[in-house]
Design a binder for these strands. Structure first.
Lengths: 233, 233
DNA sequence: ACAGCTTTGTGAAAGCGTGCACGAGGGCTC
DNA sequence: GAGCCCTCGTGCACGCTTTCACAAAGCTGT
């Protein structure tokens, strides 16, 4: 019974790259590409080929030496590893500007994360329809989460409301949270949290931008740029 | 002349945390707090106190032993280091769902990143007003960037258009890019790129969610969760 | 069947970030 | 003004991540 599921732990850095590989592999598959080498995949993902091989080796030995990887098979394996063999409905808390955009985005549903519900506290928002979903009151959160078996919540509230939102999500039974609010939230251990802060990203860019303006000798140096990447055009 | 600007290089991981400290410090200052210890700041930021001290030490020795840090002074120092002493206007490329939300968000302008322009390729978008800015054609990008001295561009296009958008931004003179499109973009060296991919974040959560479902013994274990954080409630 | 070419999978080394632990230094009290 | 207490700043060790380099393995053509 411990056969398939409990495979070796995958390093966090690798887990963060697998979705990128997956998107590229899917695109390649749609383009009719049936086989791909670590070198090609690395090029498309903007990383080192050795890193690709090591990352993929955590899933198993799915490549063929001298040939490369079978795209379709690899897509399936990465999906399985990431738990993307079924949909994960999400609930969005906060129907303001950002919440509406996320609900209306559509890209979520396509990628296996349909919007299972949107809640807010404001009476002016409740009852409106965003992204085909009617906004309901946050008090109904538990009911929504329970009935649709939702385990992922998205916080799209203003910063000061983020902790309350997180508490409400956890109380409702959500075990993973994607936090867009500009605030650090505390959650019980065992709950996964990832944070996306747009202002923070811009401020990081500002740092390198300013640094560049300061050191006026010999033009530009390579810039780390975080999860992004620089390559010569 | 090499005095102020060319201080020691700050590690990337630290640069990514400085904006978080800055937000917390600003909030504390607004609440009338005049002094803060590394311990308190660490608690609020969800990190280790030693890490806070080490991070801040890259800026200089601005703390007072036995006392802590002067909040107002520290706010100023972090702002200066991040280059936030003046505004950085940004140009948004792509006026779809996401682009509109970003332009209308308002949080950008408040934090020193006013929307200096929005461009798109679609005639149906051009001329419409989002976030108080009229959408213009992408061909006018150079003119917009030049006249407003913009150095940061935000890509909010669909994935397939991202590379073209990046090329257009670089050609227009932008040197930092925040990429929201689900695609890896290639840029000349010397251009900073940061990437925010919503689907990727959800897929990472999916991995840990699935892993949890797989190991059904003794409840939940601590989950890395990336840039987010777990703390006992 | 064998030689040669290609590409994977992985040990080992180097690099980077984190966290501990403690010395250094400054304020406060008596 | 001397001693005590508190908190910063940082050297060091540890662990994670990246990168290199190469042996193992498979396909192809003769």
């Amino acid at each position: 019974m411990a056969g398939q599921r409990t495979r070796r732990r995958i390093p966090e850095a690798t887990v963060a790259r697998l979705p990128v590989y997956l998107r590229i592999l899917t695109e390649q598959f749609d383009d009719g590409v049936t086989n791909i080498s670590s070198e090609e995949l690395a090029e498309l993902a903007g990383v080192n080929a050795a890193k690709v091989r090591k990352d993929l080796s955590y899933l198993g030995s799915y490549g063929t030496r001298g040939v490369g990887y079978d795209v379709e098979f690899l897509v399936y394996q990465v999906q399985r590893e990431l738990g993307l063999t079924h949909d994960w409905p999400v609930v969005i808390i906060g129907a303001g500007n950002l919440g509406q955009a996320l609900a209306g985005y559509g890209g979520f549903g396509e990628r296996g994360f349909p919007v299972g519900g949107v809640v807010d506290v404001s009476p002016s928002k409740i009852g409106t329809v965003v992204g085909g979903v009617r906004v309901r009151h946050v008090d109904e959160l538990s009911q929504i989460v329970g009935s649709k078996n939702i385990s992922i919540g998205v916080i799209a509230t203003p910063g000061p409301a983020a902790q309350d939102a997180a508490d409400a999500l956890v109380a409702a039974g959500v075990t993973s949270i994607l936090n867009f609010a500009p605030a650090v939230i505390a959650v019980p251990s065992g709950i996964s949290v990832r944070k996306v802060d747009l202002a923070v990203e811009l401020q990081i860019l500002s740092y390198y931008e300013q640094r560049r303006a300061g050191s006026q000798q010999g033009g530009l140096r390579a810039v780390p740029g975080g999860r992004g990447r620089g390559a010569s055009a």
